[in-house]
Design a protein around this nucleic acid. Structure first.
Lengths: 153, 153
DNA sequence: ATATTAAAGGACCTTTTTATCTTTTATTAT
DNA sequence: ATAATAAAAGATAAAAAGGTCCTTTAATAT
């Protein structure tokens, strides 16, 4: 359904939403280790997310990645679109090239409500709203215990 | 979520459920063309499905693939398990290696009901039951118009 | 100004998935 | 028995996904 790249991108963007700010940027290395994702692969993804204006970056000492207010208003669906494109998400569950309410595949009406549910969440909540919900509910972004050491300025 | 191989396997097994019998076997070629799937790739999948006793085959003139009564009692989940294995299906939507009710990822409670719904269908209905439901509801196995010529004995 | 830091960019490698081709084996109609 | 047929088996090939490495560019602390 989602590529691994998209999953990494979602988790790390949510991580930035939770832990970064314009005055506190975070390097790929720290994020990669925190959410347990391969460093150079994440670096490539971040380049693309920056080009897509989903996250922001600055080079040099104390540089790194972070979210601006504007970035925080983008959606999780924007992340998926930026990395995987939308076609992957809209694909028929059984791979039929035409599958809709009129010409449904065998599982169309089982799958559709789910798609609407999850896509709705991804489309209607901003990254910042999504992140707040996650924090409030104590959801996890990784199975690792995230050290908060790097948060100290 | 499912590999293309699994999707092909499901569609073509449902096709066999609908169109084949012990007295009317169908060749890979016909099935591949009917559901619009690459011929030699489907042949490989069928070898594996035969080894997994999900479908049956005989060689030689008038040979081909078909479902026995016993085959028809297997489930769609058996097909997926045979081709992809089950781990793929049980994976966390965001890729966390531990994600459950106690340690949920951000989308766990959105995704779980869906998984239960669709997996229930795949687990509880036999291939033959599933196929009958599909036929009754006029669902499609392909976007191509399936010619019924080859059905004439 | 300069050294240092961290991202950007580009080339490349590996693994997995998808797909093809050729030869062998089994079945059956004749 | 034999020729024809269709699956089984095995070896490869092509494409996509996942991942790494090295050089260049920009920012900043000193």
């Amino acid at each position: 359904m989602l590529s691994r790249a998209s999953k990494y991108a979602i988790l790390s963007t949510l991580f930035l939403a939770e832990h970064s700010s314009e005055t506190h940027k975070i390097s790929v290395k720290v994020i990669a280790e925190s959410i347990d994702v391969p460093n150079p692969f994440l670096a490539k993804l971040f380049q693309q997310l920056v080009r897509g204006k989903i996250i922001s970056s600055t080079k040099g000492p104390n540089g790194g990645f972070y979210l601006t207010k504007k970035n925080g208003k983008r959606t999780v669906l924007d992340i998926i679109e930026n990395i995987d494109g939308l076609s992957r998400l809209n694909e028929c569950f059984l791979g039929l090239s035409e599958c809709d309410g009129l010409n449904p595949c065998p599982v169309h009406f089982i799958v559709e409500p789910f798609k609407n549910g999850i896509l709705g969440k991804f489309r209607d909540l901003s990254i910042m709203e999504f992140s707040k919900e996650i924090i409030a509910q104590g959801r996890k972004l990784t199975l690792k215990d995230i050290s908060t050491d790097f948060e100290k300025k």
